[in-house]
């Protein structure tokens, strides 16, 4: 088959005019806007606590605290862009943490434990994907069920109590850097997070699979018409999401070094909030890795800044809640403006 032979005699009535600038701006406005919000929040706390907040040390702490949620948000970004949702990520993190602790307890090395944890996450995601596509039950319900079931499994495996085992170096992934290691700028976990963000961004924007994910989320019927294997894309998305959640679980273990089956309760909501603040749409087709990262950073900044100022946890939660709603309202406004600018 030859490529792109076009009928030559069709008229060229309306060549496009090169005015995509406004559209480029609108496209970027989301990420830029979210980033501006992060700067605003950061600036606010810097003014309120000029001695302790805007320091290199604190920024490193912030980056470390963002890691788990930000990595989890990458998996969630893929799932939400594909038009799905995963409520079971908190439970997956708990299961991963328990599995890592158990494998270490059994005498295996840190690498084996880490890989076992990540694969556990992937397996959970695979199960989510298979259940959603084969039973044809909406993702919300399937993953709500999995939230319960996986939490139960984690508790059962841990015999209803935390597992203490030697972390064998896994604690170093996300630990604060000692003075001799300052040249690394951030601990390995933060770098891993940045790499995952970059990979997710590239996957979504620059790969065939990524565009298929967007297409499935934007309009599943069109995707099917165009020959996209919708079921396979969905299963893969949930598996990949689970795998990335497994990495988030590894970070969680590194931070606490305990196989605590009650950990990460409600983390799925923080992760979903990060994606939504970053421009993800729960009706699918929209969302970006960078936006979700910034969303996670905003939430971490508020919680860290709040503790610097001695705010009560209740105050922090009220503010975070308000920010979620305002972020989505602004996003809606942006959409309407964009639609109006393009006419009907």
């Amino acid at each position: 088959m030859t490529q792109q032979q076009a009928p030559a005699t069709l008229d060229y009535r309306s060549p496009t005019t090169p005015t995509p600038l406004s559209q480029k701006v609108l496209g970027w406005l989301n990420v830029v806007g979210t980033f501006a919000a992060l700067l605003l929040v950061f600036g606010f706390f810097s003014v309120m606590a000029p001695q302790s907040f805007p320091t290199a040390q604190n920024i490193e702490t912030l980056a470390r605290q963002t890691t788990t949620v930000a990595i989890g948000a990458m998996g969630m970004t893929l799932i939400i862009v594909a038009g799905g949702i995963d409520l079971s990520v908190g439970s997956i993190v708990a299961l991963v943490v328990v599995v890592i602790a158990m494998v270490l307890q059994a005498g295996a090395g840190p690498w084996i434990a880490a890989v076992a944890g990540i694969l556990t996450g992937a397996a959970c995601g695979l199960l989510n994907g298979l259940l959603i596509t084969s039973l044809r039950v909406v993702p919300f319900i399937v993953t709500l069920g999995m939230l319960e079931a996986l939490r139960g499994l984690a508790t059962h495996l841990a015999h209803e109590q935390p597992i203490y085992s030697k972390p064998q170096g896994l604690q170093k992934i996300i630990a604060a850097l000692g003075p001799a290691e300052r040249w690394k700028i951030f601990p390995a976990g933060v770098w891993i997070m940045l790499v995952i963000v970059a990979l997710t961004a590239v996957l979504l924007r620059y790969t065939r699979f990524g565009r298929h994910v967007v297409a499935v989320g934007s309009n599943e019927q069109t995707a099917r018409l165009c020959g996209i294997p919708v079921t396979r894309v969905k299963v893969l998305v949930y598996t990949l999401g689970g795998l990335i959640t497994g990495i988030a679980g590894l970070m969680q273990y590194s931070r606490l070094t305990i196989g605590d089956p009650t950990i990460a309760q409600g983390m799925e909501l923080d992760i979903i909030a990060a994606v939504v603040i970053g421009g993800g749409s729960l009706s699918g087709g929209e969302g970006s890795a960078l936006g979700s990262l910034i969303g996670a950073a905003i939430m971490a900044t508020i919680s860290a800044g709040g503790s610097h100022l001695g705010w009560a946890n209740s105050t922090q939660r009220i503010i975070t809640g308000a920010i979620i709603i305002v972020a989505v309202a602004l996003d809606q406004l942006r959409h309407r403006t964009a639609a109006a600018a393009q006419g009907d």
């Binding site: 792109q4 076009a6 009928p7 060229y12 309306s14 559209q23 393009q342």
Partner: peptide, 18 residues
């Protein structure tokens, strides 16, 4: 293709729904 079959639009980036 936009040029060859005369799709009236500002750029290929534009959302099809508009």
């Amino acid at each position: 293709w936009v040029e060859r079959i005369g799709v009236r639009c500002r750029s290929p980036r534009q959302a099809v729904g508009t």
